Computed example of a mutant assay.
Amino acid sequence: MLPTPKKYFLTAAAAEGESGLTAFDNALLAGGIGNINLLRVSSILPPGAQHDPELKIPPGSLVPTAYGYIVSKEPGQLISAAVGIGFSADTFGVIMEFSGLCGKEEAEKRILAMLEEAFRTRQMELVRTEVRAVEHVVKKIGCALAAVPLWY
């Protein structure tokens, strides 16, 4: 059985690269998570998890992470990515991810709408939210990424 993560942070970044993969890698580096191994997880923040924006994760660690990203090879195209966490008063939180062909403001709106729906569906009260988003105008090959790494 895997341990339950106790800490988290939100990050959003964008970068260019010579290929789609290096654009993604460069966005990870810009977001402070380029030297860890992301294990993509679905979107529940464990009860009691503490926000730690200065969290340092050892290089090479296997890190449960909820993330969304988009890569584009279309110069001039506007891309964005966003993550958000919805918090209940006394139990777990819900994480939502988004990426698309729009600006940061639209990405943030979509995240908030998804969080509201997730809480409504669960019949839980949404007491607050945290959102991080980024937009990027592609020069050659660009990536926008937003993530919530979870740690122990």
Rank of each mutant, 00 (worst) to 15 (best):
M1S: 12
L39M: 13
R132P: 00
N35C: 00
L55G: 01
M114F: 10
A13V: 02
P75F: 07
A133N: 08
K56N: 09
V83G: 06
Y152W: 14
A118F: 01
E116R: 14
A107N: 07
L126G: 10
Y67Q: 11
E116T: 11
P46N: 07
S61N: 02
S43N: 15
V134A: 09
A147T: 11
I36W: 02
L145F: 15
L55D: 04
K73F: 06
K139D: 15
G103L: 05
T22H: 04
A113D: 12
G32I: 03
K109P: 00
M1Q: 10
E106I: 15
G34Y: 05
V138A: 06
I70Y: 04
L38P: 02
T121H: 00
K6E: 15
A82Q: 05
A13Y: 01
G142F: 11
G103W: 04
E125M: 06
A49T: 15
S80A: 15
L2G: 01
G48H: 07
L62W: 11
I44M: 08
A30T: 02
R122N: 10
R110A: 01
S80K: 04
Y67I: 01
A49S: 15
P75L: 07
R40S: 06
V63K: 05
L150Q: 09
K139C: 02
S61R: 01
Y69K: 04
A146G: 14
E54C: 00
F9Y: 14
N26K: 06
R110T: 10
P149H: 11
T22I: 03
A144Q: 12
A146E: 08
L150V: 08
I111L: 11
E135D: 15
C143N: 08
Y152C: 10
R122W: 07
I79E: 10
L112Y: 08
A49Q: 06
A113C: 04
L126Y: 10
Y152S: 14
F119N: 00
T65V: 13
Y152T: 14
L126V: 10
K56Q: 13
G20R: 09
A23W: 05
G68H: 07
T129D: 01
V137D: 00
A12I: 04
L2R: 13
T121G: 00
P75R: 08
W151S: 09
S88E: 07
S80G: 13
P53K: 01
I33H: 02
E97L: 09
D52A: 12
P47E: 12
G32M: 03
R128C: 08
L150F: 09
L150Y: 08
M1R: 10
L115F: 09
M114A: 15
V41S: 01
R128N: 14
G32H: 05
L45D: 08
S72Y: 04
Y8P: 03
I79T: 09
L28H: 03
P149S: 14
G48C: 11
M1P: 01
A81C: 12
Y8L: 02
E117D: 13
L21W: 05
G17C: 04
E135G: 10
Q123L: 07
K56D: 08
E106G: 00
I36L: 08
A82P: 04
L10T: 08
L10F: 10
L38F: 02
L78H: 12
